[in-house]
Design a protein around this nucleic acid. Structure first.
Lengths: 141, 141
DNA sequence: TTGAACCCTCACATATATGTGAGGGTCAAC
DNA sequence: GTTGACCCTCACATATATGTGAGGGTTCAA
């Protein structure tokens, strides 16, 4: 497929697809007329890139972890220098931290929405303790 | 505490703490000499903000969800307009998508690391098999 | 009373991801 | 053979989060 179709199917501007290519996250074949040509695999690949970008990973890091996400991944073993593996372990751990942070906060938002939809109403009898609770309000972020 | 201590305890530059204040993510009291004064709660609050920023949420959104994360949150219920609740639901869903994307990719990285460490340990104590795999590797390229 | 170590505001600079548009090919349909 | 919908490169613009530094006040201890 050409860039326009990939753009529509991944909801990503042509500009960005060319940018990702420039940043070497993807590679494109070229048709005789110079047009870029992509095969089906790129739909998922681009959506994966977008997901990771949206989750806060910079292109520099995405470029490093993408090769590990290919299956079969054996081809990429030889590229794995010890420094690279260290980077990957660090990134894996950062991703886990991000996940936990997101889960905690998503659950808070979720709880909030649940309580609102249950029809919470201000109860003057419970306002007494508010000050005390404020003290240990934010935990573990 | 003053901004320097908060900065050290949250590993966040003074510049950014002032920026978060300008963006109304946090508020500071002022001492008579004009210095900012923070109480303990801000340590967690700032770390929460940093976690969310790192997870890809823009300040605009963080500003909207932060009030829901306060406990007790009752104070903020009356502010919840229907549009606001819609935004929150959308953000909750986006956070869930981010979480799933991160988990998928983290697990892939993790699997990769596991396989590398099973087959090819850069650790000098366990280098037995490396030679064969290196041969394979080079012919695959 | 001087100096170090804080703090203030303000402004300009940088990196990253993204938008926009100019100037110009390619190609299929009318 | 003209038109419209694609594609190309290149360059400039924008938004967001962050760094850096100038110019200047405050506090405290030697």
């Amino acid at each position: 497929m050409r860039i326009g179709e990939l753009s529509e199917r991944t909801n990503t501007s042509r500009r960005l697809l060319r940018y990702y290519e420039e940043q070497m996250l993807i590679v494109s074949a070229r048709m005789p007329n110079g047009y870029r040509e992509y095969d089906e695999r790129f739909v998922d690949r681009v959506m994966q890139i977008r997901g990771l970008l949206d989750a806060g990973l910079p292109i520099r890091i995405i470029k490093q972890i993408l090769p590990c996400l290919d299956k079969p991944r054996t081809i990429h073993f030889p590229d794995a220098t010890p420094e690279m593996l260290d980077t990957l372990r660090r990134e894996r751990d950062r991703m886990t931290e991000r996940i936990n942070c997101l889960i905690r906060n998503r659950d808070s938002v979720s709880d909030y929405l649940d309580e609102v939809s249950k029809g919470w109403r201000p109860d003057p009898d419970q306002e007494r303790d508010r000050h005390d609770e404020l003290i240990d309000a934010h935990s573990a972020n």
